[in-house]
Every structure is written in C-alpha cells, then in structure tokens.
Design a protein around this nucleic acid. Sequence first.
DNA 1: GATGAATGAGCCTTCATTCAT
DNA 2: AATGAATGAAGGCTCATTCAT
Lengths: 209, 209, 209, 209
Amino acid sequence: MTRQRILAAAELVFARRGLQGARIREIAEAAGVNAATIYTYYRSKPLLYEAVLERGVLPLQELLAKFTASRGASEAEQLLGATIEHLAARPQLSRLIYLEAISEGSYLPELARRWLRPLLERTVGELEIGSESSQWDASLFPLMATAFVHLSFGYFALAPLLREVFAGDPLSEEWVARQKRFVIALTRQMFPEMSGEGERRPSPSDRSD
Amino acid sequence: MTRQRILAAAELVFARRGLQGARIREIAEAAGVNAATIYTYYRSKPLLYEAVLERGVLPLQELLAKFTASRGASEAEQLLGATIEHLAARPQLSRLIYLEAISEGSYLPELARRWLRPLLERTVGELEIGSESSQWDASLFPLMATAFVHLSFGYFALAPLLREVFAGDPLSEEWVARQKRFVIALTRQMFPEMSGEGERRPSPSDRSD
Amino acid sequence: MTRQRILAAAELVFARRGLQGARIREIAEAAGVNAATIYTYYRSKPLLYEAVLERGVLPLQELLAKFTASRGASEAEQLLGATIEHLAARPQLSRLIYLEAISEGSYLPELARRWLRPLLERTVGELEIGSESSQWDASLFPLMATAFVHLSFGYFALAPLLREVFAGDPLSEEWVARQKRFVIALTRQMFPEMSGEGERRPSPSDRSD
Amino acid sequence: MTRQRILAAAELVFARRGLQGARIREIAEAAGVNAATIYTYYRSKPLLYEAVLERGVLPLQELLAKFTASRGASEAEQLLGATIEHLAARPQLSRLIYLEAISEGSYLPELARRWLRPLLERTVGELEIGSESSQWDASLFPLMATAFVHLSFGYFALAPLLREVFAGDPLSEEWVARQKRFVIALTRQMFPEMSGEGERRPSPSDRSD
DNA sequence: GATGAATGAGCCTTCATTCAT
DNA sequence: AATGAATGAAGGCTCATTCAT
C-alpha cells in the first residue's frame, strides 16, 4: 500500500521535474511518508524512477499486445482510441515519456525497444497492408506513425500549455473525446481505402456529445 | 562574445535537463568559462533560463509576424515549412518549449501569450477562411492547430527517441525535408479546397531528394 | 542536546565575528556536528543568530523582572551586582549585544524594546526617587543609566582588549569581583543620599578578597 | 585623493561589519570606485583594514602625547573632553576599536601597545598622584581608567542602540556636550581633591546649553 | 515497516583578487 | 590610475542517503 502511494507520488513529481529535478523529499511529502521510508522500497532515486517508468510502460505494452493478434480495417482506429483513453486516465504517463525522450535519459533505449518500436512496427505494418492502393509514399510511413504518437501522447504532454491558451481543461472528458474524434477522423481522411465497405464511413464532423 | 557562448551552452543544457535539473557548472563547462563568469552576465539561474527562452521565442514571434500580412491559399504551407526549417536550425528550441510546458514552468504564460496564442489565432483564422466549404467541424480547429505544433515542434522534441528507434538522424537534412513534405501533404489532404486551382496540386508522394 | 551544543557554539562564534562574519562551518566544527545538521534545527544563519540572541536576552529580561517589584535604597546595587555576576557567567553575551549595536543589526529594535529600554526606565525610575535631593541634573539620568550599561556589559565586551593590556584575566573571579566592587562604590559615590542610614556605608576600598 | 575616498569608505564599512564581514565591493561602491581600484592602493583587505585602523589610532596617540608633558589638576578633565570631542568628529573610530576588541582581531596587540596602555598609564599615573589622599583603593585604578574608556569610546560605539532607545541623536552636538559634561562631573565627583582650590568647582548640574 | 537525526557531497552564489587594456 | 572581465576559493544551503531506534 505504501509502495503504491510512493509510486503514485513519484510519478507525479517525476512527470513535472524529470529525474534530475525531482526531489526525494517532495515525493515523500506527496506520498505522505517520511523521506527515509522511500528507501525501504527503492534503493535509490534512479531505481525509483525506473520503477515508475516500468509501471507506466508495461500497460502500454499490454495494450499493444491486445491488438497484435487480430488485424483489420478498424483495428488502427481502435488502437488509437484505446491509447488515448488509456493516456487520459494516466495524465502523467505522456509527460514522463516525453521528458525521458527530451532529456535523453538512460531509460530511452528501453522505451524504444519495448514501446515505440513495437508500436511503429505494428502501425506501419498495419498501414502497409493497404500501401498498394495508398496515395502515400512508403518512406513517409515512419513519420506518419510518429505523428500518431504526437497526436496521442503529445496532446497530453502539452496539456499545461494548452490549458494556458484555451479556456477549458484539455484533460476533461469533453476535450479528450474531441481529441479522440479528431485523430480518428484524421486517420480516415488519410486512409480512405482502409475504411471497410460494410462500415459506414463517418464524416469527421460527427459529434458524439 | 562570452555572453553568446554562455547562452548557447545554457540552451544546450536547459534543453536537456530543464531549469531545475540543469547545473550551472555543466553550463559553464560547455561554454568554456568559469562558473562564476556566468554570474557576471546573469544574476541567477532562472534569469539565465529566461534569457535563453527569450532568445528562442523572439525569432518565432518574428517568423509569425512575417506571415500575418498576406493571406492566401499557400500561406499556411509556407508558414509550416518555414517553421520546420527554423526549428531544424535550432534543435534545442522545441525541447526547451516542450520541457517548459511539461514542467509547468513559470515562463509558460509568456510562452502562451507571445507564441502559441498568436500562432493558433493565425492558423485557425487562416483555416476558417475556408471553413464554409470545409468538411471539418469548427470545434476541431484548435485541435488541428495544436496538431501542427506537434508535427513541427514535437518532431524535434522527440528527436532523441526517434534516433533510438530509426536508423537515421531525425535532424539530418534528408529527414527534416521528408517531415516537411509529410506535414504539407497532410495539410493538403485535410484541406483540399484550400489548394488554389492555378497551383498544381502535388501528390504526397512527391520526392525532392 | 544537539540543539544546545549548536546554540553554545553559535554564541561563541557570533560573539567573535558577528552575524555576517560568522561561518556556519566554523560553528559546526565548534559544535562537533556536520554543517548540514545545523539546518535541521535552524533554517538559516540569521534565524540561528536570532535564537542565540533570544537565549541571551531572555534571562536578562527575567533578571530585570525580579527587581521590578521591590524598590529601595540598595535595590540598584543588587541589580548591578546580579547583572555583573550574570554576565561573568555568560562571557559572550555582552559581546553579542555590543556587536549587534555596533553593526546596527536588525535585532537592534528588539534589543532596545526588551532589554535596554526596561533597564533604563527601571534604573532611571529608581534614581529619580532621590532626584529631589540629588545633586545631578535630571537630563543626565539617561546618560548615567547608559554609563552603568558600559560599566557592566562594556567591561565584558572589552575583555579581550583588557586581557591584552593587563597581566590578568578580566573574566577571573578576582577581577570580576573587583569590577563589581568598583561599580557599586561608584554608585554610592554618586548617590550618597541613597545609602540608607541603618546600613553601614562601606568604603570603596573595602576588599572582599 | 582616491586613496582618501577609499579609506573613508572603508572606515565606514569596517566600523559596521568588521574585517570579516566587510565586503570589498561595498567599500568600493561607498568610495565611488571600481573594486579593482582598491587593489591599486592596498594589496589585500586586511592591509586596507590595518591602514584604516592606523589612520584612526595615530591621532589618538598624538592626542595623548599632547597631555603627557604638562600635568595638573585639570589635565585629566581636558584629556577627557578632548577625547570625546575627537571621537564625536570621527563617529566610526570607537566602533572600529570596539569591534576589533570584541573580535579579538590581530590588530589588538598594536591597539593595546600604542593606545590603551599609554592611555591607562597616563591616566592612572595622573590619578596616583593624588592617591594618598584618595578614598579609592589603588587596585581599582585600572578599572577606573577603563571606565573612562567606556564612558568616552563606548558611548559612541553604542550610539546605534541609544538612538533606538532615546528619541534624539547621540551624535548630535547637544547630546555629545551633555555626555562630556556628565563624564567630567563624574570625575570631579570621584576625585574632589583633584579640583584645585583656585578653580571654581562646577556643579554637575551646570548646563552650557 | 517507519522515522528523526545526521552527514558527505554537491549546488548556487558570492567574494577577494588578478590581469589585460 | 582605473576598470571590466574573469576566476579559484569559499560560503550558505540542499540533497540523497544512512542508521539507530
């Protein structure tokens, strides 16, 4: 129980300050425990940091695994939607990953190997199925896959800035739903051929709220 | 001269560690001066940080200003292209901005006021010209504008991660050109009505290299 | 316990160097603790300084309070004697107060309010009882009161200089007793009318050693 | 000229902060010169400090010398009066000497040898002339001499504290004159036999203002 | 398991001092 | 003679970490 409280607090602080900027005492305060208690569970700050990342990346891996088995027209859309929902429920995750990437942290290779590479392969592989009929150059596929990372993870990472610019809260249900709708609509716009015939092809202007 | 060396070194370190994580001594070493020398020019680390951000944001403001006067079909494309080229020449800028946003730094309001807000207004305003005929819901415009931030700034901010995943260097001329081409193609895909008749509408598969 | 050791060491160093000149590391060494430990108890050097002064001034206040109730001929003498004995037991206190005064420290108003002002009022009030018959101009009373501060506190503050000039140790019992005798004799010399009839009027040359 | 400005500024700052607490840059600012300029005249902070003390002690030595030749009843009074006037014109001198004494500075022996020792010998010697008829124990002579140091130098050293307690300014002409009158009256009170017959013996209540 | 106390290392910043101009 | 720029050496303070309780 204490371990979970520590992990949650650490995630919060690491997502805001990064590994170097985070302070054990701040994490301890956020967790409501003494700073020394943290060392009962984790032998050092970097190890705690790794545990936090681990706890964030593992579900992503699992999320991805679900979509590896079945393939189909709407698979990509479902993956995108599920990812965004997952991220909306864990607002710190995107920030952690972006911070780690920007800071060129030592966990970066792990992040690439276990999460981004599978994600890209999975998505690009998916997309390449329809590549023959696609109007897109195959060399753009990595960039496209990357774009979807930005449109899902980046949206949440930049939330503080968006909050400053727009009136509303980017993490609110309404906003998240809108972003989800936008990304899926964008996908369909880019790959019209992937939308199965049987399925009604929704207009980007469809509103669910 | 020393001041410029300090600013350049500080940009490098701040872009990697953030305000809190950056160490003055590391900046000093990178600048090839004694740590005390930094204080001859900047009275504190936060003030140095502000100066670095200032030096990064001002050109963005000016870049934006150039495109405010004339409007037209290909204006948005030009702005996007120019932005990406600008960022490619200053690889730390995107990281600085993303770090500041993720860390909810105190410079965030300034960033919103002087850069993101004008950018969005400018782009959304541009897009709204064609909104009548557009297939996009007006409520998605902010998200679309934000998406272009991700596709330009985010690309460079995540460069270390991409470098880890792909074989090549995301900051290389070839890669940057490809990203530029991709983003512009995406724009045309999304707003076909904005491409003027006189202009040949290029296929996204066009290659310049 | 550690707190007391720190306070004692700090008193020693502050009395020698003042607030600005004192070095935390020197205090720590004198206290036999790590410099960081000091910050476990006091959040900053000025706050430690205040605590040291507080610990010095409070007993002075209490000493003064004892003599506020009863009044009489020999009260002043007793106060003087008690003060000198108190100071002899706390050799740093006078130096602290003099340093604070000379340096125009921020604790000065507190010092005036809680110690010197009551002392003067108390003494001057006492003296004024006999003012009718006194040969002293009333306008000199403040100066006289101040003189007694010099003759008690100043004696201890200047101890290092006296040690340099005379052979002996100004803080030795013998010297302190002699100073006490001198000050009291001086008082009687100045206010012969205050010495009660019943009491034998001792000659200044009386020796107790 | 610059040298004098530096000395004056240094005196001001040293009198407030002591050797350790004083900062070269503060002295430089007070003198209106660049900090480096100070090093054109003095090779180090301690040497500047010595020069300041030297400049303060030398006139005291000379003042003392004037009174060494002639002896007489009113000599002591004149010395006291002259000293107080001298100090009133150099408000920092007393503070410098007291700080040096309290801090047990390295200049202390010099101070004792050149100023305090001669002063005491001179005064005590003077007093001992009348010791036969005096009511004072000879062993108290050093203390008495010291007392006069307090009553002259101490008065000015504690000026900031007195200013805090009393309404007026202890350095004002009126206050200084009063203190002078008080000290002289006290002397006469203590040594009535020293006041020559021919001279009218003034009452302590005499007022000059 | 949890913590208050303690500390070595290191951080930001200041300071006395030097030197080229 | 005077100074702006630069720096090695602290100085105050914080931090991650340990340990006895």
